Simulated scan of single mutants.
Amino acid sequence: MSTFQLYRSPETAVPAGRLRVSSLGIHEAMLPGMLRYHQQRELLLMFFHTPARAGHETDCRGGFILWPHGTLCYYGNPERSWDHSWCVLEGSAANLLRELHGLPAGRALKADAEPVFLRYFEAILRELNSRQQQDEYVLEHLVDLLFYELSRLIRNPELQIPKRLQRAEEFMWTRIADPLTLEEIAREAALSVSRFSSLFHRYYGEPPMQYLNRKRMNLAAQQLLYHAGSCKQIAEMTGFADQFHFSRRFRQFWGVSPREFRAEKMLRHLHGGGEVAGHTDL
């Protein structure tokens, strides 16, 4: 069950050898807009959880892209908030592994790979946070497995998420400000509630309403960090008509109130924690 997480290697980190992770973000929700970034590292791997554009591709939801060194990256959604995960890889092994598994660079690939990305990004993040210096051997094997699973998804379309579940997941995101019921979401997939819940859990790794709540809590956290909006405005934006209900659910999920979350994260950012930085300095 993934929440917003961010890693940036220390400025004093040892220069890249075979493989080094310089930064990684999981479920970073962004405000409407397009980002332009000149990729100067070895490889930038990016997955889009929600509708977004990347380069010349206009519909990248559920897809991923590998931006190689020297590429001008252009991505985002100019019409509404969007959510993505990403990782910057350095060292000679990054492109060698990409070539070994036949993953094209510079263009978006549709693979319905959200469970794969979350599983390996979280494993990489745990490894990075467990020691002071990066272990190239462990990281290289994790990236190798990630690339293998991505190439397997591309080769085997039957492993991908059924279209009706994708429609339901898209419905959740586009209606995230509405108080949706499980029956409404299942109807969008043209399935009974029990069948929909079972299939959704199988492909997304958690029950649909738990998944929706996590999406809302991630979006609320991002709004608290990046926006000056009031808690009441953020509550309405994330599907809560009652500000007190929103605050209670937020505390249950994050362990602190919305006001405490905003104050704690901003204070950490001011003291150099780097937890609220965006992509402008990847």
Results as ranks from 00 to 15, higher is better:
residue 141 H to F: 11
residue 100 L to I: 07
residue 225 L to N: 09
residue 47 F to E: 06
residue 51 P to C: 03
residue 199 L to M: 12
residue 242 D to Q: 07
residue 245 H to W: 08
residue 115 P to S: 01
residue 20 R to Y: 10
residue 47 F to V: 07
residue 181 T to G: 07
residue 66 L to T: 08
residue 192 S to C: 01
residue 218 N to T: 12
residue 136 E to Q: 15
residue 167 R to L: 15
residue 140 E to P: 05
residue 74 Y to W: 04
residue 277 A to P: 05
residue 104 P to W: 01
residue 140 E to W: 06
residue 139 L to I: 05
residue 7 Y to A: 10
residue 178 D to N: 08
residue 163 K to V: 13
residue 14 V to I: 11
residue 158 E to L: 13
residue 19 L to M: 11
residue 247 S to Y: 03
residue 139 L to E: 01
residue 125 L to A: 07
residue 107 R to G: 02
residue 162 P to R: 12
residue 115 P to L: 11
residue 101 H to Q: 14
residue 148 Y to D: 11
residue 41 R to D: 13
residue 249 R to F: 09
residue 104 P to A: 04
residue 67 W to S: 04
residue 115 P to N: 08
residue 219 L to D: 02
residue 100 L to F: 09
residue 222 Q to W: 01
residue 241 A to W: 05
residue 263 A to R: 14
residue 225 L to K: 12
residue 44 L to V: 10
residue 249 R to P: 13
residue 204 Y to W: 12
residue 103 L to V: 01
residue 227 H to P: 06
residue 243 Q to A: 10
residue 257 S to A: 13
residue 193 V to K: 14
residue 65 I to Q: 06
residue 3 T to F: 15
residue 215 K to L: 07
residue 92 S to H: 14
residue 261 F to T: 05
residue 232 K to V: 05
residue 77 N to V: 04
residue 56 H to N: 00
residue 265 K to F: 14
residue 149 E to H: 14
residue 185 I to W: 05
residue 234 I to D: 03
residue 245 H to T: 10
residue 82 W to Y: 06
residue 19 L to H: 02
residue 163 K to M: 11
residue 106 G to W: 02
residue 144 D to P: 07
residue 2 S to M: 11
residue 170 E to W: 14
residue 162 P to I: 03
residue 8 R to Q: 01
residue 150 L to S: 04
residue 151 S to K: 04
residue 188 E to N: 08
residue 53 R to Y: 02
residue 16 A to E: 13
residue 49 H to T: 03
residue 187 R to M: 02
residue 47 F to P: 05
residue 77 N to T: 08
residue 125 L to V: 10
residue 78 P to L: 05
residue 220 A to H: 07
residue 54 A to P: 00
residue 221 A to Q: 00
residue 189 A to P: 05
residue 84 H to P: 03
residue 145 L to G: 15
residue 224 L to W: 10
residue 106 G to V: 01
residue 279 H to V: 09
residue 25 G to F: 02
residue 26 I to N: 13
residue 117 F to P: 00
residue 150 L to Y: 04
residue 223 Q to S: 05
residue 71 T to V: 10
residue 16 A to Q: 11
residue 138 V to K: 00
residue 187 R to S: 14
residue 111 A to C: 09
residue 228 A to C: 12
residue 227 H to L: 06
residue 148 Y to C: 13
residue 32 P to D: 06
residue 213 N to A: 09
residue 93 A to H: 10
residue 140 E to V: 10
residue 200 F to L: 15
residue 134 Q to M: 06
residue 41 R to K: 15
residue 23 S to Q: 09
residue 104 P to D: 01
residue 107 R to E: 00
residue 18 R to I: 13
residue 151 S to I: 00
residue 72 L to A: 03
residue 128 L to V: 02
residue 85 S to E: 09
residue 180 L to H: 03
residue 108 A to E: 01
residue 43 L to T: 04
residue 221 A to H: 02
residue 169 E to A: 14
residue 37 Y to H: 14
residue 247 S to T: 15
residue 173 W to A: 06
residue 230 S to I: 02
residue 278 G to L: 07
